[in-house]
Amino acid sequence: MEVTAGRPALDGVRVLDLSRLLPGGFATVLMADLGADVIKVESPDGGDYGRLVEPETFAALNRNKRSLVLDLRTPAGRETLLRLVERSDVVVESHRPGVLDAMGLGYARLREANPRVVLCSLTGFGQYGPYASRPGHDLNFLALSGFFAVPHRPGETVDRVGLRIADLAGAMYAALSTAVAVTSARATGQGQHLDVSLHEAAAAWAAPLALPLRAPADPADSPLVTGDNDLFTTADGGRIALATFEDKFWLAFRTAFAAEFPELDDDAYDRRAVRTKARVRVRELLDGVFARRDLAWWSAALSGLDLPWAPVYETADAFLADAHVAARELVGTLPGSATEEPRRQVRFPVLFGSGLDSLRAAAPGHGEHTDEILAELDR
């Protein structure tokens, strides 16, 4: 695997990925994008069932990796894994607590094989505690995290979003913490066990906004709940995201459109504190204004103003057609393989001055690199 220039941060780091589905897959694809040799260890019976759920998503979560089939239920499979651990920096797993120990592959055993190894255990609720053995998915972790305690509009129940927030947040903490732990292990010669909880990751994201809401009788009284920082529906059913949080933006917006919409020719809400207190009235005012013109009209009228606004993209095609996305080359084409067609994917979302080609290799076929990896053990 080559990059366009320089050496990616994790070049020379080997990761054994025993995880499945979104959280582990996203954590390890971040490492793979950054140059790590990620070996996806899969069972003989079809491997990661993410392959069967949504091929496009699986392809995005497993690019730049190699696939090795091992049956860890057998002594031979476990022996082979331990031989790989001797030559690896990281093991990532997403089993429930105790599963690896029961297989004879817990951290104590891995450390015997390689004192420098970092074991990253990515679970719903962590390795201990009352909920540790519970099954769960993203929605459960969010429900317990404080995510739904942060209101966005007065009088409305907070609902879920389509993105798997807890899964992705936990994966990012896992990747960051693993990179730090590998650096430490190389300096000290000692690895460690990372206990990553998806629930706790979601709580860490929610806490800065949720915890201050303990005092108000009504959480919607939060100064972050406003009437002018929201989505507004246009005459043709399109949506505009307007975020005039600062006074200067509100003033610029209302003065620019006061001639077209006389109700905006009113300085009563020019101060943030006043707009926040009158959040319901401000929202009703803007709802009425935006509903009188279609999305194309608003987009043309707003495009020349220095305002925080955006059309709401509600399809992937709209996102792909965006001029800024094109200018930044945010989406590229991943090469195809024997089992994968070339696919359009979003690159690693940081531009390195020394260069980074994160769209290097397609997601591997099930067991595609088994012979290659096993042959490396004999060198």
Rank of each mutant, 00 (worst) to 15 (best):
V118M: 09
G46K: 02
D71S: 12
V85M: 08
L163Y: 03
P335M: 08
E341H: 04
L351M: 06
E260T: 15
A143E: 00
T339P: 02
L242S: 11
V312Q: 08
A206P: 01
W297Q: 05
L81M: 07
L286F: 10
A259F: 06
D317N: 02
T80Y: 03
F141H: 10
H369G: 02
F290I: 12
R281N: 12
L72A: 09
G106N: 12
A220K: 03
R347G: 02
A149D: 14
A5C: 11
M172R: 07
R186N: 08
A32E: 05
Y173F: 14
R328Y: 03
A174M: 05
G332H: 10
T4E: 13
A243I: 06
R272M: 15
A256M: 09
R281M: 11
D230C: 09
T333H: 08
D266G: 09
A181D: 05
F319G: 00
V29R: 02
D11V: 00
R87I: 03
V158S: 06
E156G: 05
P75T: 08
F148G: 08
S43C: 06
S184F: 04
E79K: 13
V158P: 02
T28S: 13
S121M: 03
A321G: 09
E200N: 09
S145L: 11
L30K: 02
I240W: 13
V117N: 13
P23G: 02
A310C: 01
V92W: 06
Y107D: 05
L176H: 10
S197Q: 07
T183S: 11
L285R: 10
E263I: 15
W309L: 06
P115T: 04
V118K: 07
D270W: 02
H324N: 07
P135K: 15
V15G: 07
A296F: 05
V280E: 13
F352G: 01
A5P: 00
V312L: 14
V282M: 15
D294L: 11
H152N: 12
A179C: 03
T57N: 10
Q190M: 02
P335N: 09
L68R: 05
Y131V: 01
A76Y: 04
A217D: 14
R109Q: 15
M172L: 14
N229E: 05
D270Q: 14
V29W: 00
T57F: 14
A206C: 10
L224I: 06
T28M: 02
D221A: 12
R254C: 12
L142K: 00
N114P: 03
E93Q: 15
Y313S: 06
W298M: 08
G98N: 11
A185L: 08
L242K: 08
D287C: 09
P23K: 02
E54P: 00
D89I: 13
L377C: 03
P8Y: 04
D270V: 11
A316G: 00
P262M: 10
V118R: 07
E2K: 07
A296D: 15
L264A: 05
T276R: 15
Y313N: 12
A300M: 03
D270G: 14
D17R: 00
P130C: 13
E79R: 14
L209I: 00
